[in-house]
Structure formats: structure tokens, C-alpha cells
């Protein structure tokens, strides 16, 4: 759609600009300010230049090694949950009933985990996985598995991953369900006349329609899993050892635990930058995909 040029539109956007700028730019300036200074307490600050950034990006220092360890850990975590949640979400969306009371019931149950406060999600799984009072931990241990998420690295990871699958797969499912619903019945009838197999229908009709919503799903899931803090913090507290310490947990530890403001600020900026770069790629890909679709429509 061709939009008209109208600079007065800024007046409509101004309130949003001001309220977000208040919450985004002022704090960001504080962070930048901290990141180039050092403090010895008493509110005395000293210019430290790019010192913190050099330390952060040098894996041989303490700060650098912690940053890179949590970065790889977080990337691995994001990779695993994307590999599980996206295919599972698509399969569940394809299994949804088409009409009747079942649809509403499914939607409500699916959306339920998304509306639970994140610390309560952590609490639910903390309880559910305990060998003494939790159903999951109890059953696993009685089946002969030595499952304990407090002391075993692998069990802690498995718990955090399963918790995230429980928490967020519904998001992928709901997005795909919305995409699938927008496919006109005529497409399926045509496929039936052509005698297309189930797999061919999925590949030729459903997957192309899902392309756009899947893009939103993958990137939302990447961002949110990359920023995850509360849920693993409640369940494992980042442990055992540092095995489930993701970037946000490391950051809060440095900032509010040790009160190393300079280090924390430098880490914040690099962390934010990584996310913004990914976000930029996301936005470009999405707008290009939108433009392609518009162009295709024009041809058709």
C-alpha cells in the first residue's frame, strides 16, 4: 500500500517516542557512563577508558572467561530449545482440531503456561523435579534413574530445557495455528484432486504459508531464550557450579552481587549489541519477505 508523506504524523508518534526514550535512553546513558569508569566506593569515579571492554573481550582474564563461558552456554541453550520447540510446535499446530469446542479448549490450555509469572514457572518445575516431593523427580528415581537437578550438571540442563519447552512451545504452536488458519480450503481441495500426499501438502501448501509466522517465532524464541534469567535462576540458581549460568544471570551477579558497575556495564553494552545486531537482521529479513509477498501479489 502506498502511504502518503505527512510530517505531521510525528505528532501522533511523539508520545510513544518520549515515553520509550525516557525508559530507554536515560538508563542507557547511565550504563555507558559506568562502562568507561572505575570506582573504589564512596561514589568516587575514575576514568577507565576502554579498559573494561578490553578485559571483557579477552578470554584470558577472569571477566573475559566468565563472559565467553556464559555466552557459549547461552548460545548452546538457545540452539537446543529452538531445535526442539520449532518442530514440536509445528507438529502440535498440525494436530489441532479444526472446529468445535475443542479448539477453544486447546487454545486456552496452550496459552496457560505463557501467562504464568516467570518465577512461578521456576517454582513449578523446582517442585515438580524434586526427588522427594515432586512427581517427575519421584517417578524418575523410582524407575532407577539417579535424577537430581541440584547436584548433576546434565540433570540441571535437562530440567531447564524441558521447563523452557513446557513454557514456550505453545508460542510457536499458536503462531503456526494462526498461519494455518489463514490457508483457504480451496488449496486443500485442489491438492486432494491432484492426489497429493500428506507430506506434499505440508511442503507445498502449509510450509510456505508458515514461513512468515515461523520467522517471528524463531526470532522471538531466540531473543527471549538469549535473555532468560528468572526461570533457571529460581530452579538451579545458575548451578550446579556455573553449569546453568546464562548471560543475564552472570550479569546480575556482577552488577548487584559484586557491585562491579564498570564490568557489568561493559558486559551490558556488548550483550545488548549482540541482540540488536540479530534484531536488525530479523527486521531486514522480515521487511524483505513482506516486500517479496507484495511483489508476488502484484504479479498475480
Amino acid at each position: 500500500m502506498d502511504k502518503t508523506v505527512n510530517q505531521k504524523a510525528w505528532l501522533l508518534v511523539l508520545p510513544v517516542f518520549l515515553i520509550v526514550a525516557f525508559s530507554a535512553i536515560l538508563p542507557l546513558m547511565t550504563v555507558v557512563n559506568y562502562s568507561v569508569q572505575d570506582t573504589f566506593g564512596n561514589n568516587q569515579f575514575f576514568w577507565n577508558g576502554l579498559g573494561w571492554f578490553k578485559e571483557l573481550l579477552d578470554p584470558s582474564t577472569d571477566l573475559g572467561s566468565r563472559f565467553f563461558a556464559s555466552l557459549w552456554r547461552n548460545l548452546l541453550f538457545s540452539g537446543i530449545i529452538l531445535a526442539i520447540e520449532v518442530p514440536l510446535g509445528i507438529v502440535v499446530a498440525l494436530s489441532m482440531p479444526r472446529q468445535g469446542w475443542g479448539v477453544a479448549a486447546c487454545l486456552v490450555i496452550l496459552a496457560l503456561p505463557l501467562l504464568i509469572p516467570w518465577n512461578v514457572v521456576g517454582t513449578i518445575w523446582q517442585i515438580f523435579g524434586r526427588p522427594d516431593i515432586g512427581l517427575l523427580g519421584y517417578v524418575l528415581n523410582h524407575m532407577g534413574f539417579d535424577y537430581n537437578y541440584v547436584s548433576n550438571d546434565f540433570d540441571a540442563w535437562a530440567t531447564v530445557v524441558v521447563m523452557d519447552v513446557w513454557h514456550w512451545t505453545s508460542l510457536v504452536t499458536l503462531l503456526c495455528y494462526a498461519g494455518l488458519k489463514s490457508i483457504p480450503d480451496a488449496y486443500y481441495q485442489a491438492a486432494q484432486i491432484d492426489g497429493a500426499s500428506r507430506w506434499a501438502v505440508f511442503k507445498a501448501i502449509q510450509l510456505p504459508k508458515l514461513h512468515r509466522v515461523l520467522l517471528i517465532a524463531v526470532l522471538l524464541r531466540f531473543m527471549d531464550s538469549f535473555m532468560i534469567y528468572t526461570e533457571p535462576f529460581v530452579v538451579t540458581g545458575g548451578g550446579p557450579g556455573n553449569s546453568t549460568t546464562f548471560i543475564s544471570i552472570e550479569l546480575v551477579k556482577i552488577a548487584l552481587g559484586q557491585f562491579d558497575l564498570g564490568k557489568a556495564a561493559a558486559l551490558s553494552l556488548v550483550y545488548n549489541l549482540i541482540i540488536i545486531i540479530v534484531c536488525w537482521v530479523f527486521y531486514t529479513v522480515m521487511t524483505n519477505a513482506g516486500a517479496d509477498r507484495q511483489a508476488n501479489k502484484g504479479v498475480a
Partner: peptide, 25 residues
Amino acid sequence: RYRFLGDKHLFFWLLSNRMAPPAVY
């Protein structure tokens, strides 16, 4: 509805805040 100076940049900047980790702030 409208095209105006810096609209795309502004929209992206708004979105980038949705992606900012609360831990940073």
C-alpha cells in the same frame, strides 16, 4: 497510514527495545 521523516528507523528503534534484556536495565 503515513510516511514521515525517520519512520523506519524509529520503528526499528522501538522494536529493539522489546529485545533489550531486563537484566541490563
